[in-house]
Structure formats: C-alpha cells, structure tokens
Nucleic acid binder design. Structure first.
Lengths: 252, 252
DNA sequence: AATATTAAAACATCAGATGTTTTAATATTT
DNA sequence: AAATATTAAAACATCTGATGTTTTAATATT
C-alpha cells in the first residue's frame, strides 16, 4: 500500500491547553487585554495540576500571545503578538536553512526596488531629512563595525515603513536581521563602506526628485553591489560562498 | 529629559535557561540531533528544580528547536526548526495585524511575477504536467469550498519551489496561509472559480513557451483579478474591505 | 497630607512522589 | 534456533503541597 501514516504526537496536557487557548484567541473569543483565570483556578477548571497549566502558559508566552505578570494585580493577559517574536522565530528558521547570499539578494531585488518606487511618489521632506542624516552618520563613522549595521538596517527599514505595508516591513526587516549574522562576520573595509554610502545617497537623490524609475534602478544596483562585496570578502573563521556560510554546525 | 526606559524583564529561571540553550544552538555549540542531559541531571547541573527546567524545555519545544521523547531511549534532542512552526508564528502575528487585502496583493505583485519569470527559464515537462493536472482537478471540482484553496495553494507553491529559493517559498506560502483565513469566508462563486482556472492556464501556457514576460504579465493580471474578486464578494458574518477583515476581535 | 507598614493576591520555585512510555534485556515457548 | 512473551530500567508526564517573591491596595503612622 502506498500509504504513509504520520506519527501521532502524544496527547500532552499542556499542549492540549495551549491549543484550546490559541483557538479561542484565533476564534475571537479571547481579545487583547483579556485576563485568564489565575493558575490555581484555571488548573482546577481544566482538572489538571498547576504544573501542567504553567507549562501551557509558558508556551503561549513564548508565542507572544500571553503576558504574565506577577504581583497582586498580576495574572495572564492576552497580548498582541509583536514583531520581535516573529523575527526571532524567523531567525531560528533561517539559521538551519542557512540560505545562500544569492537567495537573500534575489528576494531583495524583487521587493526593495518596488518599495522605493512607491516611496518616490509619497516621500516627505521630513523623511528625506531622516535618510540624509542616516547617511551622514554612516559617513562619519570611522571604522564601522556593528554601528554600521544598525544604520544600514535603519535606512532600509525607513524606506519600507514609508510604504505603510506592514507585511513588507516584516519581510524586509526579517531578511535584514538574518543578514546581520553574515554581515557581522564580513570584514567591511573602507571601500565597502564608501560604496554603501554612495549608493544610499543616489537612492535618496532620486527620491528627492520623486523619480520612481531612477530610485528603483539605484536600489537594484545597490543590492547587487552589496552581494558582490560580501562574496568578495573573506573571514578567518568562516567561509562565505554563494551557497551560504560554511559553519561547523551545518546539518552535515 | 527625553529618555525613555524600557521595563526590565524579570529574571525568570526558565527564560534564562531558554536563552542559554538557544544561544548555544545559534553559536554552533549544539548541533542537530544532539541530546541534552535528562531533566534530572540538567536541573541539578543548573542548580534549579525540575519544574523550571521543564518549562524551559517546553518553550524550546514550542520554538521548534527541541524534540522531546518519552521512554527509555527518550530525552531532549536538538531539532531543525520546521516550516510549520514558522507559519504558525506568522499566522499568530497576521491575526492581530490583520493586514488589508491590498497589502497582500501588493507584496504578491512584487514577488510572484518575478517568480514565474525564473520558472519560464527552467521549468521541466514534468512540472508543467503537474500544474496542468492541478488545473484539471480544479475545473472538475463542482462547487469548490475548501478543496479549491488547497489546489490553489499547491499551484502557487509549486511555482515558487521551482525557483529553489527557500526564503521565497516561506514568504509566499505564509502569505497564502494567511490569505486562507480570508478566502475561507469569501463566497467563491462559479465565475470566480472559472476566472482562477483561466488565469492559471494562461500562466502555464506561457511557461510552456518559456516566455518570461508573458508569464509574468499573466501572473500579475491574475493576482489583481483575485483581489478584485475578493473585494467584490460579501460575507454574512464579516465584512471584507481593502483595509482588512472587520471582525469582533479587532484591536479597537 | 505624606509616608511607612501591613496584608493579600498571584506568580515563581522547589522537593518529592507516582504514573506512563519506550526499549533493551531476559525468559519462555514453539 | 527462532519467535514470542515477560521484565526491568531509563526518561518523560503529572500531581501534590509547601515556601518564596512581587506587586499593589488598604491601613497605620508620622
């Protein structure tokens, strides 16, 4: 027979409770700010021990769905999942997938040129000023290191935020976060830094002229330049290839 | 003073352990398949109670980083984070963000036309056959419902898988999964279904001719048509707008 | 009125007991 | 000897109940 049965996972009490509460949230029965019963009462309600309920609470907290506070007015409260939770999750995933730099570049070339096209049509003077200050800060940084990464991320984040599309923000930010792990290792020399600043400036110039095509082309060129720069650089501890980082802890 | 201090999180034992183990994984000290000490031994090693360690294990398990098995040869094993974990996380996030259909369409129009361009250059006869069978199955489905969704997802998933870029796969699949929540509500009438099948067929035809531009244009048109169709339809329980689903449990 | 103390609610942690699952080793049967 | 059944042990799963800590509201004191 061609059937293949999946292993049925054990019926763990805590997991059962997690699913019940998560479903209640996704079904709209529990709203943001709602307080769940105290450990003691809820455990009695489910007919389980406090330990089991606590394990369920911990998991829901890890999902970002619950906030647990101590003290007299404390308890478990339904919470809106925040971006940090999702990004951590994506970082965990990308770590094992260890996608090649090519893959990151490819998805960036799909999204970010389009993003700046949108920006060109609606960017404000204030936002342009923000971006210019960002570039200035980067230029004045003597020998970059981690601070450069922060500025670089802030630059690209600002652009996606202008679009007002939170899905795009999430995706681009997550990719940036994942790329940090690679950039952190790359020896960013003076030349690389200069290139980034020049590219950013060209993008901002195009945006000031509200020229979508020009901005788009500048962004596309920038993304490809960054890839080229990263592939060219070498690190003592790790080897960077098109396929990904070669690290000790790769799966095989 | 313009400072704003963030609340410092309580030093919870379980969380401390979670972070230590997660760091060890991300630093490459723990590899896939590695077994952690038994609850008893590890708790003693950390100098904490079994309960605290168990809560940490539960959280790591929820992150998809750990697999915990019972029995004589059981224990806690480092695991590769799987797609399901990430998608669940994204579903939690999107639920509260409740992005508008516009936002989904926008990111899709950035990615999927480019995806089929790549496909046009490398698609095989086998893959074309798969796509055609998918369309046939959809056409034979009398009055769609949920089965249609599965076929629709499979169609788009196949295309991104052909690119071989796992980041793009993750993004597109997650968006599809999030869209299900909306599509499930939409009354997919005969006309809508026919439109989808026609569009899919045009895309496959272009792919068979290995014509990137034609495929790209067909995909772009398809995505916009789907949005139009969804905005046009109404549901009794919920109201679908460009801004998102109006549900009882929206934050305000 | 401002400050200090106290009490209570709720989570945090611990310790130890008992149950369940899984597998390896052993004993039994054919 | 091979197949089957039994047993033992390791490790997780769950429960119980005690004690500590945090936070805030109520109360007492200055």
């Amino acid at each position: 027979m061609g059937f293949k049965f999946e292993t049925v996972k054990a019926n763990r009490i805590s997991q059962n409770i997690v699913e019940q509460i998560r479903s209640a949230i996704l079904d709209g029965e529990l709203k943001i700010g709602d307080q769940l019963p105290s450990e003691k009462n809820f455990a009695r309600h489910f007919g389980v021990s406090k330990s089991s309920l606590r394990e369920a609470y911990r998991v829901l907290e890890a999902f970002g769905l619950l906030e647990i506070r101590q003290g007299m007015t404390g308890g478990a409260f339904i919470k809106e999942v925040d971006l940090t939770t999702v990004k951590n999750c994506l970082v965990n995933y990308f770590f094992f997938q260890n996608p090649g730099i090519r893959n990151y570049t490819q998805i960036r070339t799909f999204i970010e040129p389009e993003v700046v096209k949108i920006c060109a049509g609606k960017i404000t003077d204030e936002e342009i000023e923000y971006l210019e200050n960002n570039i200035l800060a980067m230029e004045q940084e003597p020998d970059g290191k981690s601070f450069i990464s922060d500025l670089d991320i802030a630059f690209h984040k600002k652009l996606v935020d202008i679009t007002g599309n939170e899905i795009i923000s999430l995706i681009v930010e997550s990719i940036q976060t994942a790329l940090i792990n690679i950039k952190r290792i790359v020896h960013t020399d003076e030349q690389f830094l200069k290139m980034v600043c020049n590219d950013h400036r060209k993008i901002v110039n195009a945006l000031r002229e509200h020229d979508p095509e020009k901005a788009s082309k500048a962004m596309l060129k920038h993304i490809n330049e960054v890839e080229k720069g990263m592939l060219a650089s070498k690190s003592g501890a790790m080897i960077i290839t098109e396929e990904g980082l070669l690290m000790q802890n790769r799966k095989n």
